Simulated assay, not measured.
Amino acid sequence: MVKLSAPSFWFRPQVKLWPAVLTPLAWAVARVARCRMQRKGWQAPVPVLCCGNLTVGGAGKTTVVIDLVQRLQARGVHPHVLTRGYGGKVPNGTQVMPAFHTARDVGDEPLLLARYCPVWVGGDRAVTARCAVSAGADCLIMDDGFQNPSLGKTVSLVVVDGAVGLGNGHVLPAGPLRETVEDGLARTDALLIIGADRHDVERLAQSRNLPVLHAELEQVDAPEVLRSSLYVAFAGIGRPEKFFEGLRSAGIKVVEALPFPDHYAYNNRDIARLQAEASRLGARLVTTPKDAMRLPASFRQNVVVMNVRLVWRDPQAPECLLDTLLARQA
């Protein structure tokens, strides 16, 4: 099976050699990122909430976006989501149509988000924002794009996976950071740590007087029939181990866990291997909602899709964040 491609030293601060060797390149990347973010983006006539992160890879942003979309809708707001559409091939400013588009067209995350509200894909967020506003959006949520200067942000929420934190603290390629911590936190309005804060990220944020929010990603309660079966779990997300750990915490009997790279496009050979492995172990297959978007419909019906939900430590924290978002634009 395909293994994850992120270098292990990115998440091992005790490893000094490779970060030292790659430091000149990291300086160049940080300088380019800093210069790029000095450009002024288009200011939308509606509030813009950016859910981004400082590192490459997943931190749970899409689940956060879904949660905030539903909270805004409960207030009578009509949010639209703007996202890059990783791996897609449709033109910039395309609205996602789940009945028409596939993950190869628009990416997996946009298809998942389109279940909840209108979604627009494209690397130029100013273009997608104009399309969304023209279509009736009275609030925009950016799924990623924190390092994209083309659209001005009303509020920026940086999401951190508490299990891995900010890695070794170095910028690409010496580490997983897209920009320096100092540059990123200077543009941040609040920090959301998902899961236990194992790397003291909260202290780092508090030293810069940033509000810190906490939440957990929890598997949606599994019925007893799932707990009584054996499962081969597979996932091509930013950190597959988080999904596997969540399954086990929910009481799912995982007999084998198979990681794939983030946004991995499953082919017929992969599917045959997954089926053979499940058959060999007398187990069923289980995966994430995003992975399901990248499976052929004929195969998807044979795979259990385990959903997750966001549980906030302080139930009022996201509401206060949205109060700030809407008040700033008023």
Rank of each mutant, 00 (worst) to 15 (best):
V2N: 14
L4N: 12
A6P: 00
S8K: 15
F9T: 09
F11Y: 15
R12N: 15
Q14W: 15
V15I: 15
V21T: 11
L22D: 01
L22T: 04
A28W: 13
V29K: 12
V32Q: 14
R36N: 13
R36S: 15
W42T: 09
A44H: 07
P45N: 03
V46W: 05
V46Q: 04
C50L: 07
N53V: 01
G57A: 08
G58E: 07
G60L: 03
K61W: 01
V64D: 02
V64Q: 02
V65D: 02
V65T: 13
I66L: 13
L68P: 00
R71Q: 13
L72T: 03
Q73W: 08
Q73N: 08
A74Q: 14
A74E: 11
G76S: 03
T83R: 03
G85I: 03
G87T: 02
G87S: 09
V90S: 01
P91I: 12
G93W: 11
Q95I: 12
M97C: 15
P98I: 12
F100W: 15
D108G: 03
D108I: 08
E109L: 04
P110C: 06
L112Q: 13
A114W: 01
R115N: 13
P118I: 08
W120R: 09
V121R: 00
G122N: 09
D124Q: 07
V127C: 08
V127P: 01
V133R: 04
C139G: 04
M142H: 07
G145Y: 00
F146R: 01
F146M: 11
Q147E: 09
P149S: 03
V155E: 09
G162W: 07
V164P: 02
G165W: 00
L166Q: 04
L166P: 05
N168E: 00
H170F: 14
L172P: 00
P173A: 11
L177T: 02
E179K: 07
E179F: 02
L191M: 10
L191F: 02
I193L: 02
I194K: 01
G195F: 00
R198E: 14
V201W: 03
A205E: 08
Q206S: 12
S207R: 15
E216K: 14
L217T: 02
E218I: 12
P223Y: 05
L226H: 12
R227I: 05
L230Y: 13
Y231M: 08
A233E: 05
A235Y: 11
A235N: 10
A235C: 11
E241Y: 06
F243Q: 02
E245I: 09
L247Y: 05
L247N: 07
S249T: 12
A250L: 10
L258G: 06
L258W: 15
F260W: 01
P261C: 02
N267P: 02
N268D: 15
D270Q: 06
D270K: 01
A272I: 00
L274V: 05
L274H: 03
Q275I: 11
A278C: 12
S279W: 10
L281M: 12
R284C: 11
R284M: 10
T288M: 05
K290D: 06
A292V: 03
L295T: 09
P296M: 11
R300V: 06
Q301F: 04
N302E: 13
V303A: 01
V305I: 14
R309E: 11
D314R: 11
P315L: 03
A317M: 10
C320T: 15
C320F: 12
L321N: 05
L322T: 10
L322K: 08
D323M: 05
A330V: 15
